[in-house]
């Protein structure tokens, strides 16, 4: 559904590619995760998808369409993106904010009010923030705000959902609820692509894991295959082991303490 083909990005004023030609696909019906150390190019993938990063090579496509040839509104009707950071310049009620997800489906004076209202209510319910609907966005906690942003993307009602570190600021329960929600969205045939540092949760929920290192794909495949101790240790440049979680059986990364000769 969302395909990166030899995609290379270089920002103005830098002498190295932020993305050095990556190729992978986030398929419909799957939860695909992108992981990798800071500066490995995860967010550049999201920016390239948004058309906000200068492509020096390759392409990004949505289904059969080249992203570069799509207008912004047509893109937004198909793909909803939750970027890493966002802050409204002036506070809105949460319901008003979530309703902005309907923007790609509206024209300045016309909108399908009934469909918009039902999409907004549905998104508030799925993100578990119905009780916050009338609160102002500047009164939300970090986690509540993050869920409001996910709700806005759900209201967009596209074929694909892309999220850049959506579980930052979330407590354990809300983080689990978010991963469950994303897996359930993927199960209904949507393509879900998320950038995440939570490798242990990715291992349990994602169908596919793309590991980036210095702007290139270091490994790509089912999480059980990609979460290989030596590969992760090399990419993250930190001593670690990958074991199997005794409770759920998924591969689990355990970073070790860097103490020469001491207990780890």
């Amino acid at each position: 559904m969302i395909r990166f083909e030899d995609t290379a990005v270089r920002y103005a004023g830098t002498d190295r590619d932020a993305l050095g030609g990556v190729s992978f696909e986030a398929a419909a019906g799957q939860l695909t995760a992108i992981a990798g150390p800071n500066g490995s190019g995860k967010t550049s993938c999201v920016r390239a998808l948004l058309g906000r990063a200068p492509l020096v090579r390759g392409r990004v496509s949505i289904g059969r369409d080249d992203r570069a040839g799509m207008d912004a509104r047509a893109f937004a009707r198909r793909v909803a993106v939750v970027t890493q950071r966002e802050e409204p310049a002036f506070p809105l009620a949460v319901r008003e904010y979530v309703a902005l997800g309907r923007h790609p489906h509206q024209t300045p004076w016309r909108s399908d009010a009934a469909r918009d209202a039902s999409a907004v209510s549905g998104a508030l319910a799925r993100a578990g923030i119905e009780a916050l609907a009338e609160r102002r966005t500047d009164t939300l906690s970090g986690g509540e705000w993050q869920r409001a942003r996910v709700a806005r993307a759900l209201a967009q009602d596209g074929e694909a959902l892309v999220l850049d570190e959506p579980s930052a600021f979330l407590d354990v329960a809300h983080e689990m609820a978010l991963f469950e929600l994303l897996a359930s969205i993927a199960a209904t045939g949507h393509a879900v692509l998320m950038v995440s540092h939570q490798l242990n949760l990715v291992a349990r929920f994602a169908d596919r894991l793309v590991l980036l290192d210095q702007g290139r794909v270091a490994a790509d495949g089912p999480p059980a295959q990609v979460m290989d101790g030596p590969t992760l240790e090399r990419v993250y440049n930190w001593p670690l082991v990958v074991t199997r979680d005794p409770a759920v059986g998924a591969p689990t990364l355990v970073p070790l303490r860097k103490r020469a000769g001491g207990p780890r």
Binding site: L50, G51, R52, T83, A89
Partner: peptide, 11 residues
């Protein structure tokens, strides 16, 4: 008013 990247994501 949400910022450039959010605007781009909303068409």
């Amino acid at each position: 008013a949400l910022g450039a990247e959010a605007a781009a994501s909303l068409g």
